Simulated assay, not measured.
Amino acid sequence: MIVITLTKVPASLRGVLTKWYQEVQTGVYVGNVSAKVRDLVWKRICRDIGQGQATMVYNAKNEFGYQFRTTRNDYQVIDFDGVPLMKHLKQAPTARKRGFSDAAKRRMAQKMSKKVNKAVNATEVVELVAVDVETTGLDVTKDAIISIGAVKMGKTGKFEDFDVLVKTKLDVPEAITELTGISNHDLDSQGISLTSALEQLKQFVGDLPICGYNLRFDDEFLTTGFEKNAITELTNRRIDLLPVVKKTNQFLDNYRLMTTLSNYSIENPSPHHALSDARATLKLATKLIENGNLQI
């Protein structure tokens, strides 16, 4: 069993803990998770604790059967012949001021240089295209593309849109119509052939990198379309944002696009609409680049 106590911490951190622990009293959380999750949660606490304090007690193989950690600076966890003890400090230790030696000064200068370079790079406009497709279903061997949306950000920083409906001999299932808002009538009256749609997409994308969220799904349908219509496939660099988000945010409830966008405070007014999803995906890519989690 694991017990965590929190005082004066941000409300967001309390909300995070309720994913793994039960709050039995204000600021007191009890749970039973693996050592890996326990350590990851503790790292998250230390990172987001702000001006608050936290103490954790958990099972351990020692004489007492437990161990503890704390962020309090007026106590120190010590090991006395295998027995964990909390030592009360009369005076909290102060951080040693760095920069006395020439070596320390050089290290500080290097860190500052990296920060400046990162800030400069963050302001650079990255040329990128986000692509999204809507289909009649999930099976690439049986289903067909009914819509392609793409958004391009060029050197000027301005956005350009690409949005087409694609005709198909297949009937659009009612569930897909409810999800996307695309009906058979829409495709018949406004749709263009897949051949024309793919050729226009190639021209729109050019040689820019292509990003998407769970891009493998979209890429499979596009690749199949190129092959069936005897069109040269796209050779652009592909960037799937899903694994980047999974690596960066290990504590999301799930990794559906809507959940991820909400975590990054990105609005998507028309989910499951190819162009709207592409716009939101490009904004997500921009956020990841600004945060230093994605390099193009």
Score class of each variant (00 low, 15 high):
154 G>I: 02
62 N>E: 02
27 G>D: 05
46 C>L: 15
12 S>N: 09
119 A>Y: 14
109 A>D: 00
251 F>D: 10
140 V>I: 13
159 F>Y: 11
261 L>A: 05
209 P>E: 05
66 Y>N: 02
273 H>W: 11
29 Y>C: 04
125 V>C: 07
261 L>M: 04
177 T>I: 05
154 G>W: 03
245 V>R: 12
218 D>L: 08
161 D>T: 06
217 F>P: 03
252 L>M: 12
237 R>W: 00
53 Q>V: 08
261 L>D: 03
135 T>C: 12
84 P>F: 12
8 K>Q: 11
121 N>W: 02
65 G>I: 03
161 D>V: 02
92 A>N: 01
20 W>G: 07
65 G>Q: 01
24 V>G: 00
236 N>V: 03
64 F>R: 15
64 F>M: 15
99 G>S: 10
35 A>Q: 15
69 R>D: 09
184 N>F: 05
168 T>A: 06
199 E>Y: 02
168 T>V: 03
41 V>M: 08
29 Y>E: 05
293 N>F: 13
130 A>M: 09
292 G>Y: 08
204 F>C: 10
224 T>G: 03
264 Y>P: 01
236 N>R: 07
121 N>F: 03
135 T>K: 09
76 Q>L: 07
197 A>K: 03
257 L>E: 03
287 K>W: 00
263 N>G: 00
218 D>M: 05
80 F>I: 12
291 N>Q: 15
216 R>S: 15
267 E>S: 15
118 K>E: 08
90 K>Y: 08
12 S>A: 12
285 A>T: 06
89 L>D: 03
288 L>G: 13
104 A>H: 01
219 D>G: 01
292 G>K: 10
282 L>S: 05
20 W>K: 12
88 H>K: 13
153 M>H: 03
171 D>I: 12
102 D>E: 11
37 V>Q: 02
130 A>F: 10
227 E>D: 13
243 P>V: 04
84 P>M: 12
142 K>S: 08
161 D>R: 06
220 E>Y: 13
246 K>H: 07
217 F>H: 09
220 E>T: 14
155 K>T: 14
296 I>N: 13
141 T>M: 05
70 T>F: 09
277 D>E: 10
200 Q>V: 01
22 Q>I: 07
178 E>V: 13
241 L>W: 04
67 Q>G: 01
196 S>M: 14
290 E>D: 10
80 F>G: 02
192 I>H: 06
101 S>L: 01
99 G>Y: 09
87 K>F: 13
172 V>L: 04
225 G>H: 07
184 N>S: 07
179 L>H: 12
245 V>L: 11
139 D>T: 02
130 A>W: 11
88 H>C: 04
114 K>A: 10
135 T>N: 08
210 I>H: 05
57 V>D: 13
180 T>R: 00
198 L>T: 07
232 T>R: 14
66 Y>W: 10
87 K>I: 06
263 N>T: 08
47 R>K: 09
3 V>S: 08
134 E>A: 10
183 S>D: 02
219 D>F: 02
168 T>H: 06
90 K>N: 11
197 A>F: 01
172 V>D: 01
256 R>K: 15
279 R>K: 11
153 M>C: 10
142 K>E: 09
42 W>Q: 08
208 L>E: 08
273 H>R: 15
268 N>K: 11
181 G>C: 02
145 I>W: 00
143 D>S: 10
292 G>R: 12
255 Y>T: 06
61 K>I: 03
49 I>H: 14
